[in-house]
Design a protein around this nucleic acid. Structure first.
Lengths: 332, 332
DNA sequence: TTGTATGCGTTATCAG
DNA sequence: CTGATAACGCATACAA
């Protein structure tokens, strides 16, 4: 590998001068600049980021911690982040936490060991202290913690929306699938749906689940109809579980949405390609990702930021697992 | 941040000694070791990887380049890689290439700028020279290049399998969806299917596609049935497109698999949750990922490797978009 | 068994 | 406008 020294030699100047033209810092004569630039081109030199990072005590690296990239919601977040970071010259060190505190800690440690200048984390332990001790900007994504910088969608609202749309479309024997207890956003959704239903005076069933895994999704769908065969509306904890429910409904000979309506959560890309396509509460995942990236960069490069806490709106995506809306109670 | 110097001061020894206990290199008296270890614990010190990397001219970082993490096949690869790397103390710098040569080059450059010790790449340009010039181990994943280290599934065989299973299950008016021309594995599949069909003396239709994007998948499905309404067997270029075809078939009032059989490719996690669940040619994506990681680490740490080229088997996953096999021509 | 000094590739300070 | 040089944090060769 070429070093700044090699370039200096070729150009017949000192390393300091080369450094100046690279960083456009300090004065440098137009002619010597030409020489240096020529030398750089000729030698195909590009600066060693490690040395830079060592000297400046900060890199162009950011750490990204996601629960499981295999869950289709997270790649969307990751993409939003990566694109924005890429455009701004930052690179990403990525890790899956599996919602496991130790693994998370391990990653955080190596992040700081590598001089990352910031981290974006979708953690269930935002208050673990590890984040504070880092002493570098952190933004929590799809998660919240007091008034720490964070980007998230309004899960509670999403839950409410799902409940309202379901009721407005005529379901009355509704089952809510409650996501994993340790995943905050999942609980927000549940709470939103539950409280909206309560406000409308509609009783509901609840199925408890303990993960978002593909393999278990089928089991919960099975359990759901075993316990509540006559349910006519399912509010799922995410689109994966919703798919499983849709599948199980079919297997039992039910037609969707006539016999059972189903509403998912997230709006993962595949939900529109299923048949019937999945009605769902959309989280603008990619936007959440880029918003988080943008916020983190502000935190890194400026001392002032517009908003430390960014809540993005969710929306109901009407597709084929819900019926058309009944105009039951029109006011006015 | 604590440095080795701080630790040395606390322990009342020199930095060299501290370094020795950290790296278990050279002799160090049992008692002074105790002292140093205590100092490390007390100060919560962990070595600066950047400084290490600078000195040793190699890091614990590896570069990972994938076309698009948003395509459900790639997170599986990524997971296989990440898990294996994590266990072995390596971290990943990740980038999406979008199959764009410039973006790829940009990433490769920053990889070497950051002293990565190896890269795993799913590139369409394995022979671009950029990979050779890097002078660090590269393994191509889901791709091949002469006798460069690589890990991939037998796409040709997969295509053949799909064709054979489709025919054995009674389809005769078969349509193959041909994936993007610039994506080698997609062409392998196509070729395999086409040649198997040819061998069996069965004619077929072909639909050309130019990407694996979700949004366009629907259009191709539409085009497929517009042009070949009476097709009774579709061999799709991947599971996403297969989903779109399934959906379109339903929309047109066709029943699957009675009227049309559909076989996908990849076996993404959601394919088993669809209804009907998707018959598909499975690529062991996660295993491919860990195999690539394993191979890369061998390449990095040893001079000899078992096999530079690893081909993993594909398999037909029989689910609900294909009928049961007709025992047409039983020999013996 | 331990300590001192050097260099890894950069940037920034300070003379010139 | 340009060039020595120190320092970033660490690992190693060499002394002691």
């Amino acid at each position: 590998m070429m070093t700044i020294k090699d370039v200096a030699k070729i150009a017949g100047v000192s390393v300091a001068t080369v450094s100046r033209v690279i960083n456009e810092s300090g004065y440098v004569n137009i002619d010597t600049r030409k020489k240096v630039e020529a030398a750089i081109r000729q030698s195909n030199y590009s600066p060693n980021e490690v040395a830079r990072s060592l000297y400046k005590r900060k890199s162009k690296l950011i750490g990204l911690l996601l629960p499981d990239i295999t869950n289709p919601f997270f790649p969307q977040l990751a993409r939003g982040i990566e694109d924005y970071m890429q455009e701004n010259g930052y690179r990403i060190i990525f890790g899956n936490s599996d919602e496991n505190a130790d693994k998370e800690l391990d990653y955080i440690r190596t992040f700081v060991q590598n001089n990352v200048v910031g981290v974006i984390s979708s953690t269930n332990f935002p208050d673990s202290g590890a984040y504070l001790e880092m002493n570098i900007p952190v933004v929590f994504l799809d998660r919240t913690s007091n008034d720490s910088p964070s980007v998230y969608a309004d899960g509670r609202k999403g839950g409410r929306l799902a409940a309202q749309e379901m009721v407005a479309r005529g379901s009355s024997r509704i089952t809510i699938i409650q996501g994993p207890a340790h995943v905050k956003p999942a609980q927000d959704r549940f709470q939103g749906a539950a409280e909206a239903l309560a406000e409308m005076g509609i009783s509901y069933n609840v199925i408890q689940t303990s993960s978002f895994s593909y393999t278990e999704a089928g089991q919960w769908a099975t359990e759901l109809f075993e316990r509540f065969l006559d349910t006519d509306g399912v509010i799922a904890s995410n689109d994966i579980v919703a798919s499983a429910v849709l599948r199980e409904a079919h297997r039992l000979g039910k037609t969707v949405p006539e016999d059972v309506q189903i509403i998912g959560f997230d709006d993962i890309p595949l939900s529109s390609l299923m048949s019937p396509s999945l009605s769902t509460i959309r989280q603008p995942a990619r936007d959440m990702g880029s918003a988080a990236a943008r916020l983190l960069i502000q935190l890194i490069e400026q001392d002032q930021v517009e908003d430390k806490i960014i809540q993005l709106p969710v929306s109901f995506i009407e597709r084929e697992t819900t019926r058309s809306r009944m105009e039951t109670s029109k006011k006015g």
